[in-house]
Nucleic acid binder design. Structure first.
Length: 277
DNA sequence: AGCTCTTCCTGAAAGC
DNA sequence: TGCTTTCAGGAAGAGC
């Protein structure tokens, strides 16, 4: 469930507390949580956290030693969290990795993930570049309007599926795809390549403003999501359609929010959200 | 190329 | 009440 805004909030908090700190130990409870690079685990002890960045929904720690840098990529999946030690968590048996730090504001960082739909990868620079190229498309907050419009024109794909396709646009999941499309007044099943220029431009603007607003709000806390410091994001209060099936449309159009279960649940107003304009 | 289906996994919710 | 079954849901891979 952590999507781009939640990952961004986590990145900012982790950067503020861990950057410049030294990893004393890295403890892995179950090795199958490491997708790649398990044999380099030892290397991380003694390295300094020199940077914390986000790729799509993933959190990346850059770790530096005199000899060079390696990276720790945390995919959070649906239920994954990165948590500071001050925070009580409900099922501590699902803490799979713990970084003990020195010289940082936070003494440790824990990777908690009960369903284990996410993994960690331990990569060198080359591995990171490969990983990134293979899995992540453009960043929705960075992509220029004209490039985004060109992307839409080139894809014969349903809008919602495209927004959520990480190799094309990295970071948007089901919650934000639904919220963005409602605000852009576009139908989830509209064909990307058939949008008018006006609609594509509007989608780009709405996508960025929704994600930026959500980051300002600390993300959406649905289910058990919270930030590394334990705070709950407030963007849920701004959700207009996600999990609002049966409620009347916030535009007061007289219609009702529908839920259609195809791959992921789509929530939308059949009257306000059109196919092209 | 792009869609659907399956698998992964466990807590919560629904069913009996 | 309490046990059993179903169900989410992000991403990857297979098959069409």
């Amino acid at each position: 469930m952590p999507e781009l805004p939640e990952a961004e909030v986590a990145v900012r908090q982790i950067r503020a507390r861990l950057a410049g700190g030294r990893i004393a130990t890295i403890a892995v409870g179950r090795m199958d949580i490491i997708r790649e690079g398990a044999d380099s685990l030892e290397w991380y002890s003694g390295s300094v956290v020199s940077g914390v960045v986000r790729y799509g929904k993933s959190v990346v720690l850059e770790c530096r030693k005199p000899g060079g840098s390696r990276y720790l990529v945390a995919e959070l999946g649906m239920t994954g969290l990165l948590v500071f030690p001050s925070v009580q968590i409900r099922f501590p048996q699902h803490v799979h990795v713990t970084l003990e730090c020195e010289g940082a504001t936070a003494a440790s960082l824990r990777y908690w993930n009960p369903r284990r739909f996410g993994r960690l990868s331990l990569l060198d620079r080359e591995g990171l570049d490969r990983y990134r190229a293979r899995r992540f498309g453009c960043d929705p907050l960075q992509v220029k309007c004209e490039d985004f419009c060109e992307l839409l024109r080139s894809k014969r794909r349903r809008l919602k599926a495209l927004l959520m396709h990480q190799q094309t646009i990295a970071g948007i999941g089901n919650i934000y795809a639904n919220e963005i499309l409602f605000r852009a007044k576009l139908h989830p099943n509209a064909m990307a390549s058939r949008l008018t220029d006006a609609a594509a431009t509007r989608l780009h603007q709405v996508m960025q403003s929704v994600l930026e607003h959500a980051i300002e709000c600390g993300g959406s806390s649905v289910k058990d999501f919270f930030a590394p410091d334990g705070t709950h994001g407030q963007y849920k209060q701004h959700h207009l359609v996600y999990r609002k099936e049966g409620l009347s449309c916030p535009n007061h159009c007289g219609s009702m929010i529908r839920r259609v279960q195809s791959e992921r649940s789509s929530f939308y107003c059949g009257k306000c959200q059109t196919n092209k304009r």
